[in-house]
Amino acid sequence: MNYLISRNEALKLLKKYGINKSIDDLKSKEVIQLTPYDKFRKENIELINAFNKINDSINFKVMRSEEYFFYVDKKINR
Rank of each mutant, 00 (worst) to 15 (best):
V62P: 07
L14W: 07
I5Q: 08
F69R: 13
Q33L: 13
F40T: 01
N77G: 03
D25E: 12
K27N: 08
K12I: 13
E66Y: 04
K75A: 01
I45E: 06
R7V: 06
D56L: 15
Y3E: 00
F70K: 11
R78N: 09
N59W: 04
E9T: 14
R78V: 09
R7Q: 12
E46L: 01
I19H: 03
A50P: 02
N49W: 07
N59T: 12
L11P: 01
K74G: 00
R41L: 03
E43H: 03
N44R: 06
K74D: 00
N2F: 14
S22I: 04
V31G: 05
S6R: 07
I58K: 13
G18P: 10
L26D: 06
N20L: 09
K74M: 04
K61H: 13
I76K: 06
F51W: 15
R7A: 05
F40P: 01
F69E: 08
I76P: 02
L47A: 07
Y17F: 14
N44G: 06
I5V: 15
K12H: 07
K39Y: 02
N8P: 00
D38M: 12
I5W: 12
S22L: 07
S57G: 11
S6P: 03
R64C: 15
N49H: 11
E30K: 05
Y71A: 05
A10Y: 03
F69M: 04
D24S: 14
L14S: 12
M63F: 10
E67W: 06
L47H: 13
N77H: 11
S22V: 07
K42P: 02
K27I: 04
S28P: 07
K21L: 05
E67P: 01
E30T: 00
D73G: 00
E30R: 05
D38S: 14
E67A: 12
A10L: 10
K21C: 04
D25Q: 12
E9R: 15
K74F: 00
A50V: 01
Y68K: 15
K29R: 09
K61D: 04
Q33F: 15
Y17M: 08
L13H: 08
L26Q: 10
Y37W: 13
